[in-house]
Write a protein that binds this DNA or RNA. Structure first.
Length: 269
DNA sequence: ATGGTGGTCCTACCA
């Protein structure tokens, strides 16, 4: 089974339907994983998505903030939502794709951004971010959770782990998203099931690579002060199933853009 | 240099 899967922090799904139309027309992903949909389940734009061929939905919405969803051309089963840190935030949804006998579980995450100050004593949002990552590590590492050995983890993890994942390693060492303590927490999540970073398998870690550019820059193209906050990871059971990765940088320049761009992964399962 | 912009839903809060 060959499938293509995209992950995109859309920053309000209702406002960005024209962008989703443009992106899906050009890249035709079978599975679309969205973060920051910023709407309730009932307000999710199922109708226009159905017209684009996405007829299967797994939505974990929330009014105003956060919210994740999976829209798919391929039927799925076992929709599951996990709540993290007992906060009632909508930051995870998963589905099982393909044959019931040998499914592939897709986990779609929106990790907390963590506020401005990288100090857990002064900033409870930063503490929440680290706690969230620890809970991810514990959950994926828990044998009782009985996770599949064929899993894809995608989403806005709000951490740029490598030096080449930010425009300036030195200048961002104390900036939330690239601090050593966050990178350490993320690497523990990664180690919990030996997740493989599919994006960096296909695009050399020597190369600067970003998926997010702030709205606050005067000229995002020229300044190019981006960060790689969005990720596609594969569990070892999927081996080298990922055949191509595209980071659609162009999307940052489209009309009324999200501050994140989509990543498209093609997989041979 | 402590702003800068953009989302939700109307007033602050979040990114």
């Amino acid at each position: 089974m060959d499938i293509s899967l995209a992950t995109w922090n859309i920053n309000s799904v209702r406002l960005r339907m024209p962008l989703i139309e443009k992106f899906t027309a050009e890249f035709k992903p079978d599975v679309l994983c969205l973060q920051e949909i910023k709407c309730r389940n009932d307000d999710f734009p199922e109708k226009p998505l159905r017209k684009l061929g996405y007829e299967h939905f797994a939505i974990n919405g929330q009014a105003g903030y956060h919210g994740v969803a999976i829209a798919s051309r391929i039927p799925f089963h076992d929709v599951s939502i996990r709540e993290f840190c007992g906060k009632g935030d909508s930051r995870h949804v998963s589905v099982a794709l393909g044959p019931e006998k040998k499914p592939v579980v897709v986990h779609n995450f929106y990790v907390p951004a963590g506020g401005d100050e990288p100090d857990t004593a002064k900033n409870e949002k930063f503490a929440h971010k680290l706690d969230f990552l620890t809970e991810m590590t514990d959950w994926f590492g828990d044998p009782k959770a009985a996770h599949s050995d064929r899993m894809i983890l995608v989403g806005d993890l709000n951490i740029a782990p490598l030096e080449t994942d930010v425009w300036s390693h030195k200048q961002l060492l104390k900036v939330v998203s690239h601090t050593p303590v966050e990178v350490e927490h993320l690497s523990r999540v990664q180690a919990s099931v030996s997740w493989q970073d599919a994006v960096r398998t296909h695009i050399s870690p020597d190369e600067k690579l970003f998926t997010w550019w702030s709205y606050r820059a005067r000229d995002w193209v020229t300044a190019d002060r981006g960060r790689r906050l969005d990720h596609v990871w594969l569990s070892p059971g999927l081996g080298d199933a990922c055949t191509t990765i595209d980071v659609v940088k162009d999307a940052r320049g489209w009309q009324k853009p999200s501050d994140h761009v989509p990543i498209l992964a093609r997989l041979s399962l």
